[in-house]
Design a protein around this nucleic acid. Sequence first.
DNA 1: TAGGTGTACTAATACTCATAGTACACTCAT
DNA 2: ATGAGTGTACTATGAGTATTAGTACACCTA
Lengths: 143, 143
Amino acid sequence: MKNYYIAVWGVIPIIAIDLRNPKPIYEQIRDNIKQLIITGAIKQHEQLPSIRELAQTTSINPNTIQKAYRDLEAEEFIYTVTGRGNFVAPSPKRVDSERVEKLYNALKATVGELAYLGVSESNILEAAQNAILQATPQGGGKE
Amino acid sequence: MKNYYIAVWGVIPIIAIDLRNPKPIYEQIRDNIKQLIITGAIKQHEQLPSIRELAQTTSINPNTIQKAYRDLEAEEFIYTVTGRGNFVAPSPKRVDSERVEKLYNALKATVGELAYLGVSESNILEAAQNAILQATPQGGGKE
DNA sequence: TAGGTGTACTAATACTCATAGTACACTCAT
DNA sequence: ATGAGTGTACTATGAGTATTAGTACACCTA
């Protein structure tokens, strides 16, 4: 009985699932794919593995995969075409202010805790800058 | 039947609990107090409201409060003296690298998503810097 | 038509969250 | 020593979520 899975899509290791992690499986899948889209590892309009295929290669139930994909579609990271599959959505043009607000709050909490734990300002800002540079390398405006 | 509570400790509104929020109550309490400690709203060795008192003012079960406090003690944000109460712990001296690693991952995910959503680099870095400035205003090294 | 795709259910199991209640050990002021 | 306050440790129960299993249906395309 394995408790660790890695699914490969093309040449990209797309998902790492840790069954010992208290984080629900569908959230691990969702956040994993989200990161791949953000960093541009999977490009706009590129097809994702089908629900059934990903379920097979990971030994995870199709319902769980579907839940992750449903979340990703609700957040507009992917779009779904019935009968065809799931595809990476183009990066959004206008800002969802409520969503940005939530992310700012998360940022504040994480950065505050890092500073409290003794990590220096320069180290924190450097880490933030690296994350920005890795994001949306395809330009963002194209579509 | 209220679904929103605010508990006050001294002059500080210490807790805002939203029962409609899918985030568990004990996590809301925990993260709320964590922020108050990080930003210095409650100072080192200052006493927190007792489990029973906070349970009364919020109409939340004492077991739920205790769970939040247990988490905070495990993360060394507070320390407990049986028979006396819970107190704010001095800020840590040495870095827990595993914990910092997790926070870096969270930072990367949050910042990446902000950038993906179109928030500018300068806005993100400014928000991070503000969070750092608000943290540990009591100096951090003293104890 | 056949085989792929997503979607939508029901059902069962296991786990977590939150509440309720009880009991016990400790501290401190009286 | 007593009593009021503190934290701690249990058991039990109800509600909700996560995951798996299975089935069925609608859609797309070669």
